[in-house]
Design a protein around this nucleic acid. Structure first.
Lengths: 196, 196
DNA sequence: TATGATTTTCAGAAATGATTGAAAGAAAAA
DNA sequence: TTTTTCTTTCAATCATTTCTGAAAATCATA
């Protein structure tokens, strides 16, 4: 049986543009820390602006059912795609978050949890190990090494705190600030030094 | 012949801490968009705080000469490791940037150049393709699609501008702001909403 | 409960990415 | 120039990740 293809005979240019968007977004997959297909599925859902079912996605991206299923599941885990049910239709449909800033807040949140939090935990342990060494011989080397780790720790703690503000409800305040800051280069933060 | 191993008999705890740091940093490689070995080499140079030669690195990380050479070259390209020559010694030595904020400014600069700039260029083209489609039939779908691309473009343009401030000489202003902001949660940017 | 539509799982296949090691290249010293 | 030391390159190999497809599981409905 034929799968539901919304707005079936799509404008040619439009579809070509979508294909390019999917390809380009797929190339960025590495940057978001996800697989290429996962990024492509997300790109398709985002750019089409519609809820699509697994078969739509398989057909459009020419991927297997297994791949589609796993990619969608992963996107749900990342909270950037959500399930949609249509009454009178047993299939599951999927749609992408359409607010770009919300999308990136979700990505930041997820990556902080998955990558930075465990890193910080390890850094604390490593700092302790180094601190222990300070009792024995080679105290100088130890103290210097601990300082280097401290600098790392301080950086990631700042990143952590900043990201918490970014992903929180008030993150929209930070979003506004970012937009203003990018639009008016003369606002605060040492813009004058830059002008020299 | 034996290669130069500075401070030869290193405190055991110290070395173990270094090894863990190298391992942990290597696992983060994906996050910085570089290969595991590259990250490990960088980690070793950073945590040791010394200039090391290729043989030191090969021996400590148990990697081949070719791998060491290519990883070092890539780190030089990223501007986070620099060459050092020692008078009376023919070998090249390498040392890592020790200022953590400078390190991350370099990473941001590099990733913006390699990833975001080409992405934006493609997005402009894709937007044009979509805009062309607006003349023909299905004008609604086209206009909506163009809007979605515009939102993406606006986001990345903001990111671009922000990063330019961050990596510029006055980036240190932004660094200071970030540190302050993380230390005093009640400063600006809608902190009150957050408190509810 | 039995049926049929839909989704998930996972072992093996395919694709991609990283690493080695030996040979060629480069550059200082003899 | 020749020798010696050190560095780079790259085809072949190895390791890891991703993808497929068919079987098993799930789940609504009759």
């Amino acid at each position: 049986m034929d799968t539901n293809v919304p707005n079936s005979p799509m404008n040619e240019n439009l579809r070509e543009a979508q294909d390019r968007f999917v390809a380009v977004w797929g190339q960025m997959a590495g940057a978001w820390g996800i697989s290429r297909t996962m990024a492509e599925v997300h790109a398709l859902l985002y750019i089409s602006g519609q809820a699509l079912c697994t078969d739509d996605i398989m057909e459009r991206l020419q991927i297997s059912r297994g791949n589609a299923s796993m990619s969608l599941r992963a996107l749900l885990d990342w909270n950037i795609v959500s399930r949609v049910t249509k009454r009178g239709d047993r299939k599951e449909y999927f749609e992408a978050e359409q607010d770009v800033w919300a999308l990136f807040r979700a990505i930041v949140r997820e990556r902080m949890n998955r990558e930075v939090d465990p890193l910080l935990a390890s850094l604390y342990e490593i700092r302790d190990m180094t601190a222990k060494a300070e009792k024995g011989k080679g105290e100088d080397a130890s103290a210097q090494q601990r300082e280097r780790i401290d600098n790392m720790v301080a950086f990631f703690e700042t990143l952590e705190k900043l990201s918490q503000r970014f992903v929180s409800p008030s993150g929209k305040g930070l979003q506004l600030a970012a937009t203003m800051l990018s639009k008016f280069p003369d606002l605060g933060f040492g813009a004058k030094e830059e002008a020299r």
